[in-house]
């Protein structure tokens, strides 16, 4: 029942009057069955756009320019992305602001029962029972009574649980969670994260977790990919990346975490701003903000993501030198 998801060289293009821009470039990601993969990056780095491309809800102005999305089926054979329905039935997505993703005029129970009736062909009654079961699974108390309640009666955390239940109704192989806890307070955030972990353990679902909170990543994710200006700059296991980042941007992100800062010093930050999509610098995109930049970084095209070990890849030309420096180079 488990599936592996492979995204290969995904590029998303938006055609604007002043020429095409690329919010996602050569995005590659592989998700093992039952794995939780973190996707980290600043706002506008293309995390959400890449995932929207995967589930097929890009804005009308954007389209996939190249690349492929492959999901293995029951026989472990890969089904190409041209079969959109296969992807759609097996990849579900939850979002940052659950409020706006629920139909305000339909009871929460019906919104979970609807995909059940549609995809599993259940009758109204069966779907109701099944939906109540899903409600229990995602930790909604008094599920039977809550079935007929409308979304505006629910708190943010409860709505997020409803969305997770609706996502699970399709029996997906992969769940994409787009900052599902950013809009929630810390205690609820913890509950939702625990819920996702539990679901992974119980059902073997793979999860792609989009966030900009490295603290959450360290608790939850098995591997992490760091995005900067539409490109993946580093992919590694969570432990390796957090302890020994091999890209200056990952390093900067980790050092600017309040938890890792020293008490008597100002919080370190990465100087400057990420480049705009329509004004990308040539060469490495992190170059204007990078303290390790050398002449070679100014090559015409951005440095490609290279495999540095069996499970790591990196897009910095100087990763070997960073490796010898380690985190405590200053």
């Amino acid at each position: 029942m488990m599936s592996k998801l492979i995204i290969r060289d995904l590029t998303v293009e938006i055609v604007t009057p002043s020429g095409p821009i690329f919010p996602v470039e050569q995005f590659s990601l592989s998700v093992e069955p039952g794995e939780i993969v973190g996707l980290v990056g600043e706002s506008g780095s293309g995390k959400t756009m890449a995932m929207r491309a995967v589930v097929g809800i890009l804005p009308r102005s954007a389209h996939i320019a190249s690349g492929e999305i492959l999901l293995s089926d029951a026989d472990n054979a890969f089904v190409p992305s041209s079969q959109q329905s296969h992807l759609r039935h097996n990849i579900a997505m939850i979002f940052q602001n659950p409020t706006s993703y629920l139909d305000p005029l339909m009871s929460v129970g019906k919104q979970v029962a609807e995909p059940l009736r549609l995809h599993q062909g259940l009758t109204r009654k069966e779907a109701r029972t099944e939906a109540i079961e899903l409600f229990r699974k995602v930790g909604i108390h008094d599920a039977e009574r809550q079935f007929d309640v409308y979304p505006h009666h629910f708190s943010g955390g409860m709505k997020q649980r409803v969305l997770i239940a609706a996502a699970l109704a399709c029996n997906p192989k992969v769940l994409i969670a787009d900052e599902p806890t950013t809009a929630l307070d810390v205690t609820i955030q913890k509950q939702i994260l625990e819920l996702l972990c539990r679901l992974r353990d119980e059902t073997g679902i793979s999860i792609i977790f989009i966030t900009h909170d490295l603290g959450v990543v360290s608790q939850l994710c098995d591997t992490v990919s760091v995005l900067y200006a539409a490109r993946i700059v580093e992919s590694a296991s969570t432990i390796e990346l957090l302890n020994a980042p091999l890209h200056p941007y990952s390093l900067g992100l980790i050092r600017s975490q309040p938890e890792s800062a020293q008490r008597d010093r100002p919080l370190p930050s990465i100087p400057g701003q990420p480049p705009a999509l329509n004004a990308m610098p040539s060469g490495c995109r992190f170059l204007p903000r990078c303290e390790f930049a050398i002449q070679a970084c100014k090559q015409p095209s951005p440095p490609p993501l290279v495999q540095t070990s069996a499970v790591r890849s990196n897009a910095c030309l100087r990763w070997r030198e960073l490796q010898t420096l380690g985190l405590n180079y200053d």
Partner: peptide, 10 residues
Amino acid sequence: DFVAAGQILG
């Protein structure tokens, strides 16, 4: 967003 959510749910 709920229209997008419906599209994802197929």
